[in-house]
């Protein structure tokens, strides 16, 4: 690990001041950041420890929703009574990720900012436009089993690796952000992560000096909530394809279908047109296929990950069948 200056923030304003320094990075749980620092993928000059600034609370919002502080651990969130009762897709998504040891340290803010597990990104001997802009992408024409099939660019085909944010996307959560000057702003979680385009080094819309203070969930909605994760082994593996679904029926027709997809893109994938195809229709295999046609209309495989396209289609059908009770 390269040497760095360690600073402990005493409060959110103090954290904002410290994080404004050149090449300063905030550390919360550290489970991803320290891993990448050991690999010298991340080489911050200053590490700002934000673990003692508060913002770990999970509490009811005035609008009937829920506030989850940036420093609440993944465990805190997954075992919280309101999350389990009103937002089970979020609890399930978190529990499907990592291990108990990691979830005990990982935080809401840090998890949103976790970086891709692309093998070229994490190996400094390999080309990677995300880590070293202009060096090329090793995954295109390379080993690309974990990689994206939606929203890719000729610069980067990395995936966003997390599960929690996929559920937050289906739930239409909002990310709350503050800056060194105490200026606050909010971003819908669906717009928080970016597609790679020509700037693959930018994972999300956080600007230098900005910190996440928490995430707000809207008031809970009716319906069935499901998180389905398909992976290489049954525990402690990243998603090849995952789906967070909130589906409500009205009689024999679908009244709501809020869907978000993990493992397919550089961000949790939310395409409102997929839901629009489903709403107002009677569930069934043909309809689910039509929804998959919309989801995958621009999908592109890169050899090793070609299988993800039919996998996403089948996973979507399985989730929708479970949510609606339809036969496949």
């Amino acid at each position: 690990m390269r040497p760095f200056d360690y600073q402990r923030a005493e409060g959110i304003d103090h954290a904002g001041q410290l994080i404004a320094a050149e090449n300063a990075v905030a550390i919360a749980g550290g489970t991803n950041l320290l891993d990448l620092m050991k690999l010298q993928v991340e080489t911050p000059q200053t590490l700002v420890d934000v673990n003692r600034i508060g913002h770990a609370e999970i509490e009811d919002s005035d609008d009937g929703g829920l506030w989850i502080g940036a420093l609440a651990t993944n465990t805190d969130t997954a075992v919280h009574p309101r999350v389990k009762a009103d937002y089970p897709v979020l609890a399930r998504a978190i529990l499907a990720g990592a291990t108990q040891q990691l979830r005990n340290r990982a935080t809401t803010g840090g998890n949103l900012c976790q970086r891709t597990r692309c093998y070229y990104f994490t190996n400094i001997d390999q080309p990677c436009n995300k880590r070293d802009p202009g060096s090329g992408c090793g995954a295109i024409d390379g080993i690309a089993r974990l990689h994206a099939v939606l929203g890719t660019s000729d610069q980067c085909i990395a995936t966003y690796p997390g599960d929690m944010a996929v559920a937050l996307s289906a739930l239409d959560a909002t990310v709350h952000i503050t800056s060194a000057h105490g200026k606050a702003r909010t971003v819908p979680v669906r717009d928080f992560h970016r597609l790679p385009g020509h700037t693959p080094w930018k994972d999300n819309v956080l600007e230098p000096g900005e910190l996440i203070t928490g995430v707000s969930l809207p008031a809970p909605v009716e319906g069935t909530q499901i998180y389905r994760k398909v992976r290489e082994r049954s525990s402690y593996a990243f998603a090849l394809c995952s789906i967070a679904a909130i589906v409500e029926m009205d009689g024999d027709k679908i009244a709501r279908a809020d869907l978000a997809f993990g493992g397919l893109a550089h961000k949790p994938w939310h395409d409102p047109e997929v839901g629009e195809v489903l709403v107002g229709q009677k569930p069934g295999a043909k309809l689910f296929d039509k929804a998959a046609d919309v989801l995958l209309r621009d999908a592109r495989g890169y050899g090793e990950n070609d299988f993800k396209i039919p996998l996403a289609r089948r996973t979507l059908a399985a989730v929708l069948a479970e949510a609606t009770g339809a036969e496949l």
């Binding site: 550290g30 489970t31 005990n104």
Partner: peptide
């Protein structure tokens, strides 16, 4: 009382 990976945390963070 909570289990964690001691390799992925800095000692100075445990004041």
């Amino acid at each position: 009382g909570v289990r964690i990976n001691s390799c992925l945390t800095l000692a100075v963070m445990h004041d």
